[in-house]
Nucleic acid binder design. Structure first.
Length: 849
RNA sequence: GCCGGUGUGGCGGAAUGGUAGACGCAGCGGAUUCAAAAUCCGCCGGGGCAACCCCCCGUGAAGGUUCGAGUCCUUUCACCGGCACCA
């Protein structure tokens, strides 16, 4: 049966939708628009179960919205630039372009049998010149609007591959590909000034009502607003043209405990001192090393160098604090200099202990001499602290109030300046890579950096490149770099950096509204289709992709490419869980793990040899662990509807779902059963109504109500449970042919978003009009949702002891009488009195004795 | 370290403060069959009872609010996720 569904029914209906243009979106009609979007895939060449789950969820929403009278836009594209294509080219000698487009063709062919309601006419890949040319236009507009700039930045440089590496590509200080020691090199790079929008991006989070709280929190933490104060400490000897060291502190209340200053090895003072001192130069070089990876930071020892300089404490002029260069002070946060208060900051304390610097407890009451041990004293912001604040005089307040009072006190005396700072940095977009969108600027000896003329766009990637030598092929291409200056016309050189691929995915949602336009967007289309009503994707994009997209929506508004209402591009966001699977493992003769594909294992043993396998609990499907199930083989074996039904059924969509062979089998069986029941109903002779008609129709209306609620609230697993229940009812019902036919057609409709092919088949079998894909969603009759009688549980002292069945509108007084006459109640009372009797109409009764 | 989330049968998971365990998987029993597959029917948290009834216990742990708590509050444990030498 499932073979039939897979091989005959599914292709038939896919062809029918295709022919009818069912999912072609157009900006017309008086229906409300609805834009549903799933995060577009990277064309790796194979779809995986995670894709199936993601796109199925979007498809359920899209199909449900079509049925409820919306004009739906549901597009699909390819996030097609990026390193894997270049790596493949380096490994196999092919071309990234061929590799990518072949993968797209393969994946599209794997995706189409899923029966998704996608408007394929809007498909594009970000590596299409038509797309990246418009991205270049956008870049030029952003450059003109001051949203992009160039500056020197310290980057991870792989000297073998001759490229910049992202932090996560540096492992133990070595390049992940080359294994070479990574340098920290200062290069001129392009940046989006996203940090200028820190406050805006932070406060606007509040408006994202239909985003998961978790994602909003992660974004807020990433932006990392902090309130503090800038304080100047006069230097004993002016250095690097500076009279004093400025530091930023969020804890000015601890100023009394300041015992030394620490500056970053990259601080101008440190750099100046390094020029005249080989020791300092050596120290700074050493301190800068250590890499930027997480482990490296975790393990990093405190390193320090006493410069011999001192600064004067701004409040107590008799105190001179030594200035140290310290490896734990970062140049790109705050001012690159800190005053250290070891008593109230763990890092400062660790440093002080290591280098024998004094520790003064700023929170001591007069006369108290509380000594700080190995742990710094750090009160919570809401905790009331009791101590003499040595300058403001506040004695007992929350730490938060003390900090605010300290800032005010310092400001009033001109000693400090209250400040708000953010963790968010500007977004470096330059990549020394071939397979990305060329940055459309030209370097001219006369005119400097000049944006390319828009009529010259797209600046295409040259096809004739080689990957046999490391480095950026654009850099060493014989002719590509040569061009005429757009401003003066003299010979000039192109920028050879390409854009971070996150740029490509930061505006594709807008491009889908007019995917083939000669401008980045068309205002009328954007005005009509934006915003994305429902965006669906993995939690792994909670921060960067979504933050960048929010920034781009603002940038595109400033540059006139999006309407004001699209300032937040995604009205609702849903982050779905992963598809997981058990891992099957044996060990080789050396005890090393050997993993096995699920299809090679049966009943806990290898099919081939019968050797028992170790079963490791379910984890994210991964090729290296071989715990993968190929959607293509599932679709071939069981059909797309089975795969769709299963990935929706077992777990709530935001959680992980474990793929099991028995679960997939069960899904296939169930769908076959529904088809069988429908066949029986279709073949039923009309015998007239029976006594069971009403029961069946009541169940139908309840199911309509509950499934509708489930789909509306992303409760797909609960909706499917209701559909199972209704199928059981239908299968056992002795209702007449007409009622059964009605119930079966409703079942098909309710299942249609999840199992569209099967539903079309049943719809046609029972004489439904047109395609079920466009049939109006069934409505629950409110009157049919309420039974004539209700069964009320009777609790005695809060424990269920009995129940009574009464007419639905029986007055409470009469219910009480019946309850008091109930056998279980009488027995429990033993002739005693009822203390209290609670009747919740239509719900429950509680007898308190 | 800071911020957040989640803990319910053998398993995945249901449950607007109102009958805990819907629905599915696995398991057990039965029907059908020469037999199997497929299908259909039934049972299925733990304990007490010969047994239906019935009684006791049960949503990580301990308290609390309430007629009534998986759900609300306090404390606590475990696991998961995000951020992090961010001053």
């Amino acid at each position: 049966m499932s073979r039939t569904i897979a091989s005959e029914i599914e292709p038939k209906w896919q062809a029918a939708w295709e022919q009818a243009g069912t999912f072609r979106a157009s900006r017309s009609g008086d229906k409300p628009k609805y834009y549903v979007l799933e995060m577009f895939p990277y064309p790796s060449g194979r779809i995986h179960m995670g894709h199936v789950r993601n796109y199925t969820m979007g498809d359920v929403i899209a199909r449900y919205k079509i049925a409820t009278g919306h004009n739906v836009l549901h597009p699909m594209g390819w996030d097609a630039f990026g390193m894997p294509a270049e790596n493949a080219a380096m490994a196999s000698g092919g071309h990234p372009k061929d590799w990518t487009y072949q993968n797209i063709a393969d994946m599209r062919a794997q995706m189409k049998p899923l029966g998704l309601s996608i408007d394929w006419s809007r498909e594009f890949a970000t590596c299409d010149p038509e797309y990246y040319g418009q991205q270049q236009a956008l870049f030029i507009d952003m450059l003109a609007a001051g949203l992009v700039y160039r500056k020197n930045a310290v980057v991870n440089w792989d000297p073998v591959d001759m490229t910049v590496l992202a932090n996560e590509q540096v492992i133990d200080g070595k390049g992940w590909r080359s294994g070479a020691d990574v340098d920290r090199r200062e290069l001129t790079q392009w940046f989006f000034n996203i940090s200028a929008y820190s406050e805006e991006l932070l406060t606007a989070i509040d408006s994202l009502d239909s985003w998961p709280a978790k994602v909003k929190l992660m974004q807020a933490n990433w932006i990392g607003r902090s309130r503090g104060v800038e304080i100047s400490f006069p230097l004993s000897t002016p250095t690097a043209g500076l009279e004093s060291l400025v530091c930023y502190s969020t804890r000015p209340d601890t100023l009394h405990g300041a015992t030394f200053m620490a500056i970053s090895p990259d601080h101008p003072v440190a750099k100046t001192l390094a020029e005249s001192s080989a020791d300092i130069a050596a120290f700074c070089l050493e301190a800068r090393k250590g890499g930027t990876t997480e482990e490296a930071i975790e393990k990093a020892d405190k390193k320090g160098f006493d410069t011999g300089l001192t600064v004067r404490h701004p409040i107590w002029p008799d105190r001179q604090l030594p200035v140290w260069i310290a490896n734990f002070v970062l140049m790109d946060y705050g001012t690159g200099a800190i005053y250290a208060c070891p008593s109230h900051d763990q890092r400062d304390l660790d440093f002080a202990v290591k280098f024998g610097l004094p520790v003064v407890n700023a929170f001591n009451m007069p006369g108290e001499t509380n000594v700080i041990g190995k742990e710094a004293l750090v009160p919570g912001k809401d905790v009331t602290v009791e101590y003499v604040n040595h300058f403001t005089g506040l004695v007992r307040a929350t730490a938060y109030d003390v900090i605010e009072a300290s800032i005010d006190w310092l400001e009033a005396r001109g000693l400090g300046k209250g400040q708000v700072r953010y963790r968010l940095r500007d977004w470096g977009l330059s990549r020394q890579r071939y397979w990305g969108c060329p940055i459309p600027v030209v370097h001219c000896e006369n005119c400097g950096v000049v944006p390319e003329k828009k009529e010259n766009l797209p600046i295409r990637l040259p096809d004739d490149v080689t990957f046999d030598v490391p480095g950026n092929p654009l850099d060493r291409h014989p002719t590509w770099r040569n061009c005429a200056c757009p401003s003066c016309g003299k010979p000039a050189r192109r920028e050879t950096d390409t854009m971070d691929t996150f740029v490509d995915s930061s505006w594709y949602y807008a491009r889908f509204t007019a995917p083939h336009a000669a401008t980045p967007t068309v205002m009328a289309d954007a005005e009509y289709w934006m915003n994305v009503d429902q965006y669906i994707g993995g939690i792994e994009h909670a921060i960067l992709h979504l933050l960048y997209s929010r920034f781009f929506a603002r940038a595109m508004q400033i540059t006139g490419h999006l309407p004001a209402k699209a300032i937040e591009p995604f009205d609702a966001l849903f982050t779905q869980g992963m598809v997981t699977h058990e891992i099957y493992m044996t060990r080789d003769e050396n005890g090393r793990p050997v993993y096995h594909f699920p299809e090679d294992v049966e009943n806990g043993a290898l099919k081939a040899t019968g050797e028992k396998v170790e079963i490791i609990p379910s984890a994210k499907m991964s090729k290296s662990k071989k715990n993968v199930v190929d959607p293509v083989s599932i679709v071939t074996t069981y059909g797309a509807d089975t795969a769709r039904w299963f990935v929706l059924s077992d777990s709530p969509p935001e959680r992980d779902v474990e793929w099991t062979a028995s679960g997939a089998e069960a899904a296939a069986k169930h769908l076959a059963r529904v088809l069988r029941i429908a066949g029986e109903v279709a073949a039923m002779a009309d015998t007239g109504p029976t006594a069971e008609d009403t029961d069946l129709l009541r169940a139908m209306h309840k199911t309509i109500h509950e499934v509708t609620q489930g789909v509306e609230s992303f409760g797909f697993n609960a909706a499917i449970a209701r559909l199972y229940g209704f199928t059981n009812t239908l299968g056992r019902s002795g209702a007449g042919a007409a009622a059964k036919r009605q119930a079966t057609m409703a079942l098909a409709q309710l299942m249609a978003p999840m199992t569209p092919h099967l539903s079309e088949e049943i719809w046609a079998m029972l004489g439904g009009e047109g395609l079920i894909a466009v049939a109006p969603w069934p409505k629950a009759d409110a009157a049919m949702l309420i039974d004539d009688t209700v069964t009320l549980p009777i609790q005695i002292n809060g424990k269920r002891r009995s129940e009574i069945t009464v007419p639905k509108d029986m007055p409470a007084a009469e219910v009480e009488k019946l309850v008091l006459a109930d056998e279980a109640v009488v027995r429990a009372l033993e002739g005693g009195a009822v203390k209290k009797l609670i009747v919740v109409p239509g719900r429950i009764v509680n007898v308190v004795i």
